[in-house]
Amino acid sequence: MKMRVLHIICFTGNSGLTDYALSLHRELSTRFSSTLLTNRNFPGNESGVHKFFGRTRNYPLSLPSFLLRELFWRRPEVLVFQSWLKFPLLESVAVRCLRLGGGKLVLTVHDTLPHYPKPWSRLSVRSYFSAFDGLVVHSQVSADTVRKLGYNGKISIIPHGSYSLFNKGRLGRDEARAKLGIAEDIFVVLFFGHVDERKGCVEFVHAARVFSPAEAVFIVAGSPDFGAIAAREFRKEVLAPSVKAMLGRVPQDEVETLFRAADLVALPYREGSTSGVFKLAVEFGVPVVCTDVGDLGDAVRQGTAFGIPAGPDIASNLSRAIRRMIDEPQLRAVYAARMVEERTRTSWTVVGEQYASFINSIL
């Protein structure tokens, strides 16, 4: 039986969004004739991955050739977009043009609104969402938000798949700690990903100050992206002896080292929709302490993650939660076991089956 032709569209080539798109492509390739169209900065080469889009700052220049390619040459039966990139209104025009080719259009919603919304953001995002035949969201919270924005089409709640592509199985805990120069008996708390204000980087380093370096190491690993005030606060606090800063993009091969070494992952987000870092913690079975925002709120309510309230006292609530995790190893073991259960629930085999079912319901 001939497989239906499906294209996955991801404008970025070296980001968490790309990691998700690649995992989805690998899984859907067993059910569709799948191609992933991504950016030219995608590292390496892989079957079915086409490096098409130019630099993200100039990606609108790639849209005309992309439309011609999809409408008159490739003509896929389904296109699955991975969120928007920068300009939802512009991208909604491009998506509507693709309707002329007769293919069905699906969007994976990773963020229901921009992280720093403008007065017109709700209108532009609503226009973008309405261009699609169906939306995939990762939680009931996101589904409710999309409905409130005025989307009336089909919605499927499909969990965010775990990031198995980072789990090489090459390192144990002791080896990972040796690489990082951390003693085996020190408790390690990891803050990973974009180091910015909305993800609570300042609150994280504030929480670290109440711990001595003899009992806990707080690792901050990722590319910094914050305003001037937060930058000053962060730089002042990051000098605390218990903080180990590894600022800059983390190479893919080093991700496993950090998560194998960690006893706990902290996600003290001020706001957000979806957390790819949470899915990395799931993959490596590391317990998580997080605020109850966006999809993380679902994880807290389901008992998968240890929750703290989002609000003005994030730092103090985080330090108290970490203290409990240090003092109560049995509690830590409970949450580690729940992460292993979550990994089974969000395996790409399960996620791929749900995507395929939703796509076929639209065709």
Rank of each mutant, 00 (worst) to 15 (best):
L107K: 11
I158G: 08
H160G: 13
G169C: 07
L149F: 10
S121Y: 02
D144Q: 15
N167I: 08
L123Q: 09
S92L: 09
K104S: 14
G172A: 03
L85D: 07
G134P: 05
Y163H: 13
L149W: 04
S164A: 13
S164N: 11
H160E: 13
G134T: 02
Y116S: 15
V106P: 05
P119N: 05
K104V: 09
L135V: 01
R173I: 08
H160D: 14
D133Q: 08
R96P: 02
F87I: 12
A131W: 04
L171Q: 02
P88A: 07
K168E: 10
F132V: 00
K86M: 09
V141R: 15
V141P: 04
G161H: 04
G169H: 05
E91L: 11
G153A: 09
S139R: 08
V137H: 11
D111M: 10
L105K: 11
Y151W: 05
L89I: 12
K154C: 09
I155A: 10
G161W: 00
G161D: 07
P159Y: 10
L149T: 00
R126C: 11
T108K: 07
S142I: 12
S162V: 15
P119G: 08
P88K: 01
R99Q: 08
G169F: 03
T108M: 12
L113V: 12
C97H: 04
Y163C: 12
H160C: 15
Q140Y: 10
H115M: 11
D133V: 03
Y163R: 15
G103V: 05
R126W: 02
A131V: 04
V141H: 13
R122I: 06
L113N: 10
F129M: 12
T108D: 08
L105W: 03
L107F: 08
S142F: 06
T145L: 12
S139E: 07
Y163S: 14
T108W: 03
V125A: 08
S139P: 02
A143S: 14
L90W: 01
L107Y: 06
H110N: 15
S142D: 15
R170H: 07
L165I: 12
G150I: 01
T112A: 14
I155L: 14
V137M: 11
G150M: 04
L165R: 14
I157L: 12
V93Y: 07
A131C: 07
F87Q: 11
S139W: 09
S130F: 00
G169T: 01
L171I: 06
S162E: 13
H115A: 14
K154L: 11
P117F: 06
G172L: 05
P114Y: 04
N167E: 06
L105T: 00
P88G: 05
S142C: 14
F129L: 15
W120S: 13
I158H: 09
C97D: 00
H160Q: 14
I158A: 09
G102P: 02
G101F: 02
L135E: 02
P117E: 04
A94D: 03
H110T: 06
P119H: 03
N167S: 12
L135T: 00
V141K: 15
L165G: 10
H115R: 05
Y128I: 00
L165V: 10
T112K: 05
H110E: 07
V141S: 15
F87D: 13
V137L: 13
T108F: 10
D174P: 04
R177V: 06
G172P: 02
L113H: 06
L123H: 05
L135C: 07
V93D: 01
W120Q: 10
R173E: 08
S162C: 13
L89D: 09
V93W: 08
V125T: 02
